[in-house]
């Protein structure tokens, strides 16, 4: 994989992302013409009302979709690289469901127990989600670390963990006073409805740093993509690199989940699709980030605007992503039996 070959596709994807972002901003309750959208973004808006609509109401939602897509996309690329398996992505492995479980557990706790310290109410959610995601991720990977990090056993263990977390989340939602529809939807299916600037304080920063680190660790990623005997023969400390990559992937997936909930299949599809687009052996970071962003933006657009009711974006990513998973499975099986 050379930079010369992947750069043009990355540029194209970047332009496509910008276009989709503007489209996402322009379509809404009342459509805003595209030139006005671009004008508002550049600070030369036609009138203050349009500027208000764009900057205060639509931009947070669009940015939330964008950031979540970037986070999931890169997280998927990293886990797929480490496990050398296109099916191993944080959403399949239960990391996103674990983060959602952590968040819901905290919501249930704060609604039940009086006299908790104030900072838990204010900043507890991202912390709880991070703990949940980290815990699940550590559990899944340590359960298969020695025997079968590269086999489908990892995927199976992850699927089980994912189901467990989903069940526990439904339990937690019945426990506390959290059963208002919007929160439940956020933590069950994933949605970017009603995101405001205040929700975008920390997580996008985490995602930006994570993506930068992932891009900087390119050599390590390419070594991990070799089979483990070869890289060991090259004198690489595989264990350390793997832990760094998986930790990074977990952080990215958790941050994305804090923004938009456990959107299904984004990480899975973005990592793999970007590898196809860039025609490279490892899923490239830039491509995965952009493909993820485009996927979530379009999914949210479809879910929110196609029907009379605003549907959660997670519904659309599931309906689009599930056939992709089936396709991946069929391909993998064909390759195996051939």
């Amino acid at each position: 994989m050379s930079a010369r070959r992947t750069a043009p596709t990355a540029l194209l994807l970047f332009l496509a992302t910008l276009a989709v972002l503007c489209l996402h901003l322009s379509i809404g309750g009342t459509p805003i013409p595209l030139p006005d959208v671009v004008g508002s973004l550049l600070g030369i808006s036609p009138d203050p009302r349009t500027e208000l609509a764009i900057m205060e109401f639509r931009l947070p939602r669009s940015l939330a979709a964008l950031c979540a897509g970037v986070g999931f996309g890169v997280a998927g690329a990293l886990t797929q690289t480490v496990a050398r398996n296109p099916l191993a992505s944080p959403d399949i492995l239960g990391v996103t469901n674990g983060a959602a479980l952590g968040a819901v557990a905290l919501l249930a706790l704060t609604s039940q127990v009086q006299g908790l310290p104030m900072f838990l109410h204010a900043y507890g959610l991202p912390i709880a989600a991070t703990l949940g995601g980290l815990l699940v991720s550590a559990l899944v990977f340590s359960l298969v670390w020695h025997s079968s990090l590269e086999s489908n056993r990892l995927v199976l263990v992850g699927l089980g963990m994912s189901g467990l977390c989903a069940a526990l989340t439904s339990w937690m939602l019945t426990l506390g006073d959290v059963y208002n529809a919007q929160q439940a939807l956020t933590w069950m299916a994933g949605t970017v409805n009603g995101v405001s600037w205040a929700d975008l304080a920390i997580a996008p920063l985490v995602i930006a740093i994570g993506v930068a680190l992932a891009a900087a660790l390119r050599n390590q990623r390419e070594v991990l993509a070799l089979d483990s005997d070869t890289s060991r023969a090259l004198g690489m400390d595989l264990g350390r690199d793997r832990i760094i990559m998986l930790g990074l992937a977990t952080a990215l997936a958790v941050a994305a989940t804090v923004i938009a909930g456990p959107l299904a299949f984004v990480a899975l599809a973005s990592g793999h699709a970007s590898r196809l687009i860039a025609r490279s052996t490892v899923p490239p970071v830039a491509h995965s980030a952009l493909v993820g962003a485009i996927f979530v933006l379009l999914a949210d657009l479809a879910a929110a605007r196609l029907f009379s009711v605003v549907l959660p974006a997670g519904v659309a990513t599931a309906v689009i992503g599930a056939p992709y998973l089936i396709y991946l499975v069929i391909r993998q099986t064909r390759v195996r039996s051939a």
Binding site: L87, I92, V155, L156, L159, A189, A264, F265, A303, F307, L311, P312, G314, V315, A316, A318, V319, G321, A322, P323, L325, I326, V329
Partner: peptide, 17 residues
Amino acid sequence: VLVGAAVTALCAGVVSA
């Protein structure tokens, strides 16, 4: 199991829609 999970997710998405 994987195809089952995918079909489940697909149906679940349509159901919630």
